[in-house]
Design a protein around this nucleic acid. Structure first.
Length: 210
DNA sequence: CTGAGGATAGTCT
DNA sequence: GACTATCCTCAGA
């Protein structure tokens, strides 16, 4: 297929909150075994290298978080509660900052997404619930730990880019962005580092935070 | 519809 | 052994 524009290294090589904000409206693609799935990013969270105890890199580099210290534009996939969450590394190599992708609106390959989700759940899932959470979208797109340290700027198997061919980018830019504290973190509760496409049905979290 | 609580496993100390 | 950037089920309204 003809690739839509892929996000390059310089997109990621900026301050993490800026990257998190500008990621809203971009598309996340996975092409695994020749099967394409994709969706629009509607919710992100920034995790900072400095003064952010909630960041996995806060206590320094360990084998588990090593990906966060790699090149911007690389993937950091970590396991939690027997699921996975997907981050993109930002700023610069050695810094230890990233953006967590919390929710997408499913656009391409819905039936495969449903299949992958149902494999775990055993029940049918509505399209708005399909990718409305960091671990849900990983399941739906087939993102596992094998994508840790994957280079997202190559446009192969897993990457971020502009809207799919034929889709008007203008329709995929949020009219309003809501900024809140991050969901589920136990430290640094007050930092306004969560970015949501305001009112989007595919966002996660309690209704009052969408 | 909403909010609370429990299940669950990988990682670090 | 204690954490956890989660998800799902089940009450209750």
């Amino acid at each position: 297929m003809a690739r839509p524009v892929i996000l390059h290294r310089d997109f990621y090589s900026r301050d993490t909150p800026i990257v998190a904000r500008e990621l809203l409206g971009k598309w996340l693609y996975s092409e695994i075994g020749g099967q394409l799935t994709a969706g629009v990013i509607v919710e992100t969270e920034a995790y900072l290298a400095e003064e952010d105890p909630a960041c996995h890199a806060a206590k320094g580099r360990t084998p588990g978080n090593a990906a966060m210290f790699e090149e911007p534009g690389w993937a950091y996939v970590y396991p939690i509660h027997s699921r996975c969450c997907f981050n993109v590394v930002t700023e610069a190599a050695g810094v230890g900052a990233a953006v967590l992708i919390r929710a997408i609106e499913p656009k391409l390959g819905l039936s495969l997404m449903r299949q992958r989700r149902a494999a775990r759940r055993g029940t049918e899932t509505s399209s708005r619930e399909l990718c409305s959470g960091p671990a849900k979208l990983c399941e739906a797109l087939g993102i596992g730990r094998d994508f840790n340290q994957h280079d997202l700027t190559k446009g192969k198997t897993l990457w971020l880019g502009e809207p799919f061919n034929g889709q008007d980018p203008g329709e995929h830019v949020p009219l309003e962005i809501r900024v809140t504290s991050r969901i589920g973190v136990t430290s640094a509760k007050d930092l306004p580092l969560r970015f949501v496409w305001a009112g989007h049905p595919s966002a996660s979290g309690p209704r009052c935070l969408r």
